[in-house]
């Protein structure tokens, strides 16, 4: 059994070198596929992460008509809190608003306003959303609520980000999908070449009484190895690109630091490495399996 496994693996390796050009083309295509997959994955993940971070900071602020009492506002707040897309609702009284305004914008110059609150009547509800894409729905609802004077929201960033990310996901899925198909096609052709080249040997093996396992495994291993190599190369490339981009952004785009949140290399690659390798092995397996099924019947 050991000697057979040895044979099977050795032949699998040898097959790759027996038709170098095809193997090279196959590895290159798989690499391109996995490389793009890695890039897209990191991009989509980071944009999603940034949006998530941004979402926790994006709030819809609702101001009320004069004469609406605090108790009524609290009631409205409860109704809003009950909505599914809402994560939390905070009541900000006029004095709270003034305090935070002073801290944010006036700093040490706030002393001149001692005593009176220029933001009288500005008590409001700050609403935080679970899902920013539902913001316009919420706004529509709020507009229909009696006593609401004004609704402040900044749907621009969140919505654009969400839509951009969705678009990016679709485009990357499409491109990766096409490359996956091309990879499978190339692997199955490379393996078919190998089978054609070793036609005689296969015939002899069958006559001697080699089982399907022994006859087929070298080609399956060839495909899987091609897939693995094709996955490993771009992983290394994406890794270096990623750490360099993070570093570069941290040094040169300090302003973006708030908007763009990078996930750590470890977070990204703890998912990307296994997924890419499994993808590579899967590609190799499917590609060679298709050919083997077609061409290697005893």
């Amino acid at each position: 059994m050991i000697s057979t496994l040895g044979y099977v693996f050795k032949q699998g390796f040898k097959n790759i070198f027996r038709n170098k050009i095809f193997s090279l083309a196959t590895v290159a295509t798989i690499s391109a596929c996995i490389f793009l997959f890695g890039l897209f994955y990191s991009m989509v993940e980071n944009v999603r992460y940034s949006i998530q971070k941004a979402e926790t900071n994006v709030a819809v602020t609702v101001f009320f008509n004069e004469g609406v009492t605090e108790a009524q506002i609290m009631q409205i707040g409860d109704a809003i809190r009950a909505r599914s897309e809402v994560s939390s609702v905070e009541f900000v009284s006029a004095s709270d608003a003034w305090e935070s305004f002073k801290v944010d914008y006036l700093g040490e110059y706030a002393d001149g306003y001692e005593g009176d609150n220029p933001l009288e009547g500005s008590e409001n509800l700050e609403i935080y959303l679970k899902d920013v894409s539902k913001q316009s729905e919420l706004v529509t609802y709020l507009e229909s609520v009696e006593g609401v004077r004004e609704i402040n929201h900044s749907d621009v960033t969140a919505n654009i980000l969400t839509q951009f990310n969705r678009l990016l996901s679709y485009v990357s899925l499409g491109i990766v999908g096409i490359l996956l198909a091309v990879s499978v096609f190339l692997i199955s052709n490379t393996v078919a070449m190998g089978i054609a080249v070793r036609h005689e040997e296969i015939g002899i093996m069958k006559l001697i009484g080699a089982t399907d396992f022994v006859v087929r495994s070298p080609f399956l291993i060839e495909g899987i190895l091609l897939g693995l190599i094709g996955a490993a190369i771009p992983l290394v490339a994406v890794y270096y690109i990623y750490i360099n981009i993070i570093e570069y952004a941290a040094q040169h785009f300090v302003i973006l630091n708030d908007l763009l949140q990078f996930k750590s290399t470890r977070e990204i690659f703890s998912v990307l490495i296994p997924v890419a390798l499994i993808l590579g092995v899967g590609l190799g397996f499917v590609g060679s399996f298709i050919t083997i099924r077609k061409r290697l019947r005893v």
Partner: peptide
């Protein structure tokens, strides 16, 4: 019907390898 890229020993051993002889 010998394997042209292998030597005499390998050609004979081949028959045993593919049927899982130690």
């Amino acid at each position: 019907r010998l394997l042209k890229d292998r030597n005499v020993y390998e050609n004979v051993a081949f028959a045993q390898r593919v049927i899982q002889t130690p």
